[in-house]
Design a protein around this nucleic acid. Structure first.
Lengths: 220, 220
DNA sequence: GCGGTTCAGTAATGAGCATTACAGAGCGCC
DNA sequence: GGCGCTCTGTAATGCTCATTACTGAACCGC
């Protein structure tokens, strides 16, 4: 069964496979915290040096243009981690992390992560895999934005987000932000697909009528 | 002194810090090969499962649109590695790797890398760092392409590529491919910067006259 | 059920880049 | 020292998406 969210990091728990000893150690230096929907966990600059691990809920990573347009880089599902850039990479980068559903987030100090990386290669391996997915994802998005027209990009997003033949919970605005475009532009592309009866549109709910043609539409 | 090529992976040798024993082992399972300029190392699909390590020369990683437009994802300098996606991630991705200068490339089997990762956390750590840079880079490029106009993107690229106040060895075509746009479009943006006397343009050689204003231009 | 708020549909205008079509200029090779 | 190739300049046209401006519909809280 293929993952309906290939872009999200649904990999197994980052800390799975640790010894009881290590697990205790992790728990000792780690703190769990609840965030209500809408809360911003970090903004550019103000990034505490820490790794966050999403236990439950949903988090969005995004960037903002000078004029306030939003570009959503990633949607995170439970067991994804984020904020690692400030740990592993050089310094912070220009992103916001915002909770889009009431969530439970685990915070881990960078130094501890560092230690864990050195001591437990399986953790490193898992992070590496997640990063790989992330690189892939970003580069694919780059290709899409550079080469494809709106309709194709919307079609691709729908395919990526569909659970079965339904895409639920995404408003046109959400779709637009995922693609870094105006809401009107997204609506337009959706209507084009609707006009070809490839999809049906409801309020925050899109139904795929013809997956084959949608796939084709996502290519040009 | 800051790195003039922050986007390239100029990190230390991936295998630095191995024991003599490990080094011998690596050499045993590794093969070095020369590639002439212009040679394509791999194309989408036809990716041998291996990690490549650039010893000397230069390699370009890029994607192609259906119509044949090129988008250069990364320029690699010596000691960068590439092709890891097929090892670490799921499968291959849609990229080409092409030698842009006569090069010396080390090839390492995936299984060996896998083993190395588990045994030597420092190698994992280094790869992780490189991935981090790569994610950062891709996401930054994503932001630029989504939010900025041509002139700003060209300006940003010039700043990134400048050595001192000179950007040498890049034709307008090269610049265009880095940005995934038409050559004419790149020329236009360059001429705009020239008209403002922020830069001077020569054949495959651009001189930065006013770094400050160029920086400002790169932002809007 | 009412009023406010979030969502979605639509249209007009304009800017920016794609796309096509050439022309001249510098360089390397014979 | 001429020829061909690469590199750069330029212009016209059209399409795509940004941007602005509304309208109506569905949903939520009360």
């Amino acid at each position: 069964m293929s993952n309906p969210h290939p872009h999200t990091q649904t990999a197994a728990d980052l800390f799975h496979g640790l010894t009881a000893e290590e697990r205790r150690e992790v728990e000792r230096v780690t703190s769990e915290r609840a965030f209500p929907k809408g809360q911003v966990i970090y903004t550019p600059g103000e990034t505490g040096e820490a790794l966050f691990l999403l236990r439950r809920g949903a988090v969005q990573i995004y960037r903002m243009s000078a004029e306030g347009r939003k570009l959503v880089i990633a949607h995170l599902a439970p067991y994804s981690f984020f904020g690692e850039m400030s740990c592993i990479g050089q310094g912070m980068y220009d992103t916001y992390a915002e909770v889009t559903e009431d969530s439970l987030v685990l915070t881990m100090n960078c130094a501890v992560l560092e230690h864990l990386l050195m001591v437990n290669p399986r953790v490193a391996r898992r992070i590496l895999e997640a990063f790989g997915r992330r690189v892939l994802d970003a580069e694919q998005q780059l290709e899409d934005i550079a080469f494809k027209g709106m309709t194709a990009r919307v079609a691709a997003l729908l395919l990526k987000e569909a659970e079965g033949d339904e895409v639920a919970g995404l408003s046109h605005q959400d779709i637009a932000e995922r693609l870094g475009v105006y809401r009107e532009t997204a609506t337009n592309a959706l209507n084009e697909l609707k006009a070809a009866s490839i999809i049906s549109i409801g309020r925050k709910r899109i139904t795929i009528n013809d997956r084959e043609r949608l796939t084709r539409a996502a290519e040009s």
